[in-house]
Design a protein around this nucleic acid. Structure first.
Lengths: 342, 342
DNA sequence: TCTGGCACTCTCTGGCACTGAGTGCCAGTC
DNA sequence: GACTGGCACTCAGTGCCAGAGAGTGCCAGA
């Protein structure tokens, strides 16, 4: 019961199919792989693999194609993440190192990842709720309105304009006082801690400014909580339409799904959280129907966290070079974390 | 020489082809339009139109399809921008009115425009160089580094961190002084005026802080000039892949082109500038080969400025409902300008 | 200047036979 | 019991052909 050889056959099928995108038959398999057995034997193995639901035949007299379960087994047990070449690594480092600000980091990362993997790259903006406060700035913007600017340690900036119910344009002193109190209490804290930390500030503030302080605190809490409507950035969507890619009719609905940023965030977020449960740099893979969101069930997603602040990954057809994608995602995540937090 | 009727035939061809996406023949044309003449006459007219390069036949015995020149003539002389319905207008107003910040305005605008027109929507972020300074903020961020935050009247925020060569952490006073000088000189000015306005500030600053002021001025100038690498936002790319749309093989290269944001910016910017030369709310149309960027020569772009700060528009196949697209673009631009500047 | 009619040209569709890759199964061998 | 060679069978893909249908160009006549 050469179980090992059967898995070897599965691996060969996955590799060939990923490379050629055509159903692979017993004969073709033998030409490309030295399995040391005859075509008939391979056929027997294939029959078993098909019975186990790991491969399937599009029609009677075609070759076999891996199923989602087949890819899953391949990813879990038959593949090793192939490390990137030294040249690739330095290229990544250099390209990302040239970024000038946060937007640029995100934009470069996605473009890099999509060109490395030839898939669609997805990156979540550094998440506020896990990052810390670098500074809070208060700016009177005419009349009774105050602009509240929250700057996180990742370089991300959130701003809110609030009506504080009092004209502050002449009262630089009161604004400066409140600014220093708030910064004293909040700088260095997790964004999620903002409401708690500001409670004490509210008590200490002169009674005249109480109303103002409350408005500002509310705005800050709101800005920190805006986390749930996180932004996500894509690159390489054209890769989905490349000739030789397998999206017969579903291309349009996949593209549609990609514009549902909320869904992508949940996906990337959920998967990368899962991965972080295991080893530090674990990469999570979600294949076809494993995917909770229906329009994306013809695709696979490879994702991971970068640092502690966000997730990134690639999305493509289930017929994907998983080892390569996983390696690229892991390496890029590593460098991004270094740049953002190092 | 019924020149008028010939144009009427052209209009009918454009309208039918846009609706059905199939080459339109003389007979089919008569069924849908009351031209008051026979099929043979229409055929003669078609022959003339073809000779003039306004329509073309995919092959000998198929119907006719408008050429780029045909669409051009249609847009210039045969179509009137059909006003949106009252319901549509209030829907636009309500949807855009619900936006909470600048990002949200841009995101809602593009999604709205793409769903109104069933095309790809493109919007340039409000451009800094034409907007004015609302406030400049200086924030010491440890050691000798200072974060310079530039807030524009459109709500857009640019930030730079500079090394000022001197430890300012203890010297709140010097920072406050510089901050008020800069704001005094720059607030309300066009961003492009920043370097000029700050020149006087540099002279007036105490000699000890000269170096600091220079660094800050440079950072601000840089932030203002970052305009050239403007951002652009897309929505509705899935519309390109809709079944019934005409992108046989070029889809992938069009999607690729859409990721070249620099190109899109030049396109939208150039076109809308052109339009603003004419009437205030003019909408510019670029059809197929009129387009300077080769991969987009199978597409048309309908664009305009919103207010004075940026451009927006839609992109789709040359077979596009121009009157409808122009109406939608114009209406949306109008409301966006109101929200951003009103 | 328009119209009806006619011959002509192409595309499209369906049917048919053929080819080739691939399969399943079976009897034989190590 | 596991593997192999061989054989019959299946089925998508291709090329070919004929017929239908849509559309055109052109011409003679009103």
């Amino acid at each position: 019961m050469s179980d090992d050889r059967r898995l070897e056959v599965l691996r060969a099928i996955v590799q060939d199919y990923v490379k050629t995108s055509e159903p692979v038959g017993s004969k073709a398999l033998l030409e490309r792989h030295r399995l040391g057995v005859s075509a008939a034997t391979v056929r027997n193995d294939m029959a078993v693999l098909e019975e186990e639901g790991l491969i399937t035949a599009p029609h009677t007299s075609a070759g076999r194609v891996p199923t989602d379960a087949g890819y899953r087994l391949f990813v879990d047990r038959l593949s090793t993440v192939k490390p990137l070449s030294r040249a690739e690594r330095t290229a990544i480092e250099q390209f990302l190192g040239g970024a000038v600000d946060l937007d640029d980091v995100v934009s470069r990362t996605t473009r890099l990842l999509s060109s490395l993997t030839q898939q669609v790259a997805v990156m979540q903006y550094p998440s506020l709720s896990r990052s810390t406060v670098r500074h809070v700035e208060l700016v009177p913007v005419g009349g009774t309105r105050l602009m509240v600017v929250l700057i996180a340690n990742t370089g991300r900036v959130e701003q809110r304009v609030v009506d504080v119910g009092r004209d502050l344009s002449g009262d630089e002193l009161a604004v400066a006082d409140l600014r220093s109190r708030i910064n004293g209490a909040a700088v260095g804290q997790l964004l999620s801690m903002i409401p708690a930390r500001l409670a004490s500030v509210l008590d200490a503030v002169p009674v005249d400014d109480r109303r103002v302080a409350e408005s500002v605190a509310a705005a800050l809490a709101d800005a920190a909580a805006a986390d749930t409507e996180e932004r996500v950035v894509l690159a390489g969507t054209a890769n989905l339409a490349r000739v030789g890619t397998d999206f017969p009719t579903s291309l349009s609905s996949v593209l549609d799904a990609l514009e549902e940023h909320v869904v992508l965030l949940r996906l990337i977020g959920g998967m990368s959280t899962l991965a972080s449960g295991e080893a530090g740099d674990a990469v999570a893979v979600s294949i076809g129907h494993e995917n909770p969101y229906e329009p994306l069930q013809t695709t696979s997603v490879v994702a991971t966290r970068y640092g502690v602040v966000g997730g990134l990954g690639v999305l493509g057809p289930t017929r994907m070079d998983y080892p390569q994608a996983m390696a690229a995602v892991r390496a890029v995540a590593h460098y991004v974390a270094e740049i953002l937090e190092g």
